[in-house]
């Protein structure tokens, strides 16, 4: 568990080589945050535990968290974008979002 100096303190990169980070606290829509040494505007409010891309992730590439793949990118995911059910797909059982 390392806090990246080039990242906002609310961002947690869990393992080296991860291409997503986890939020330790809510980030509001429109906030401009430090991410991978760049300034990025967060487009929607994201709560504790949600994931952001810490680099550009091309379609089809593994999403890596805890140092392990947790699925693959269903679309191209730009730096700073929310990574969740709309753009990350399981290699195993498909998740059904109920509401």
């Amino acid at each position: 568990m390392t806090e990246h100096p080039k990242n906002d303190p609310r961002i947690l990169v869990l393992a080296d080589g991860d291409n997503v980070a986890v939020l330790k606290a809510t980030i509001e829509a429109g906030e401009r945050i430090n991410l991978s040494g760049q300034r990025v505007v967060v487009s929607q409010t994201l709560g504790l535990g949600h994931k952001l891309a810490v680099k550009h992730i091309p379609v089809g590439q593994d999403i890596v968290k805890y140092g392990f793949p947790i699925g693959f990118a269903e679309t191209d995911i730009p730096l700073g974008a929310h990574v969740h059910v709309h753009n990350l797909t399981s290699q195993y059982t498909q998740v059904e979002v109920m509401e």
Partner: peptide, 23 residues
């Protein structure tokens, strides 16, 4: 037809069963 994954898991930021599993 369903994995061991609930609606609340997704609201709480979890996306896939393998992500939930690693945790």
């Amino acid at each position: 037809g369903y994995g061991s994954f609930s609606n609340g898991n997704a609201t709480g930021g979890l996306t896939t069963i393998e992500e939930k599993s690693l945790g």
